[in-house]
């Protein structure tokens, strides 16, 4: 996408220059614009466009990680193939679909929780109270801690024998016996959700807070004068007004959650039952050296996320296409 538009653009600006040899301001600025974005364009093409294209290409080959130069084209066989009436390929691979399901479940549950909790936290931070700035910094801390570190901290807290969470729950009498949080497929994804919520609620809250702070104050004063209950004000006034910002935040978080890797990789120790799509793809690619199969999985992940991105951008197009002032 980048390359083709760059080529088309170069053609247009060449025409521009041919028309007038002297330089007016607009023309010199447009020329400068191309000069200024060229390095970034080259770098982005090199480290994003090209690797992506190669990944897609590898997905049609039988490449192996040992020797990436020795491969042959095998068409769609990594995706789906039929030998003697039996089907092969990632598209009928239960482990793949399991990882897709895990990822979707993880995304929906964690983003929903983060949205609801994020609104609560944002509303609290929007109230004026002493120590608000400190509180804002406090909730940022989980966001800034490296995911790997959070995953390790929580693994330790969730440890089945020596973990503080089991200890706490036992003391409170909420569970009768220690739970093997991360080793058990049923609870491991919940554990991942818990850590993700811990880490990312603040991101959600801060975006919502920014939207809340842009709301005109007089509506609230009017509502107060009219004697509308705060709960009603929230659902009838606040929520509709912050909806656009909320949507943006939800989409950002969802895209992030769909590519989850670090958290699940560390927390659930690379287990097949809890693998996310990214974990599955990397396993094929690196652990099993199956670059072809891994690339096919990567390509499918890309397509899934690209679909979400395209829908998002189509919805947000008008705002993004604004002319500079």
């Amino acid at each position: 996408m980048i390359m083709s538009s760059a080529v088309a653009q170069a053609g247009v600006s060449a025409q521009h220059q041919a028309r007038g040899r002297s330089s007016s301001l607009t023309r010199s600025r447009v020329r400068a614009a191309w000069l200024f974005i060229a390095p970034s364009l080259i770098v982005v093409t090199l480290i994003a466009g090209w690797p992506l294209a190669r990944t897609i290409w590898f997905s049609f080959t039988d490449a192996s990680l040992n020797d990436l130069s020795d491969y042959k084209f095998i068409g769609l066989e990594n995706y789906l193939a039929n030998y003697d009436g039996e089907w092969f390929g990632i598209l009928i691979e239960p482990d793949w679909w399991h990882s897709v399901w895990n990822t979707l479940w993880f995304t929906v549950v964690s983003v929903s929780l983060e949205t609801v909790l994020g609104i609560v936290v944002a509303l609290i931070l929007n109230a004026a109270f002493p120590g608000r700035g400190l509180m804002r910094a406090v909730i940022l801390i989980p966001w800034a801690i490296p995911t790997i570190v959070s995953a390790k901290m929580w693994s330790w807290m969730l440890h089945d024998q020596f973990g503080v969470i089991n200890d706490l729950l036992l003391r409170l009498g909420l569970i009768a016996a220690p739970v093997t949080w991360t080793a058990n497929a049923d609870t491991a994804l919940w554990a991942a959700v818990m850590v993700d919520v811990w880490k990312h609620t603040s991101f959600m809250a801060l975006l919502i807070l920014a939207a809340l702070q842009m709301l005109p104050q007089d509506i609230y004063e009017a509502a107060k004068v009219d004697g509308v209950s705060p709960v009603r004000v929230f659902f009838r006034v606040t929520l509709p007004l912050i909806k656009p910002a909320l949507l943006v935040a939800v989409i950002f978080r969802s895209l992030d959650a769909l590519r989850v890797f670090d958290l699940i990789y560390v927390l659930t120790s690379n287990s097949k039952d809890t693998a996310s799509m990214s974990v599955y793809a990397r396993q094929q690619l690196v652990d099993f050296q199956e670059v072809g199969l891994g690339s096919a999985a990567s390509t499918l992940i890309f397509l899934i996320i690209a679909l979400v991105v395209v829908i998002t951008l189509a919805a947000g197009r008008v705002r993004l296409g604004e002319d500079p002032r």
């Binding site: 996408m1 980048i2 538009s5 760059a6 974005i37 970034s40 364009l41 982005v44 090199l46 480290i47 994003a48 466009g49 090209w50 690797p51 992506l52 294209a53 190669r54 990944t55 590898f58 490449a63 990680l65 990436l68 895209l255 769909l258 590519r259 890797f261 799509m277 990214s278 793809a281 990397r282 690619l285 670059v291 891994g294 690339s295 990567s298 390509t299 992940i301 890309f302 996320i305 690209a306 991105v309 951008l313 993004l320």
Partner: peptide, 23 residues
């Protein structure tokens, strides 16, 4: 182009992993 760049920032890392490895 700006939208393409925004889209790249939403790329799943794993989608470029094989190609990046080769690069």
């Amino acid at each position: 182009m700006l939208m393409t760049i925004l889209a790249v920032s939403m790329f799943p890392q794993v989608a470029v992993l094989a190609g990046m490895f080769e690069l």
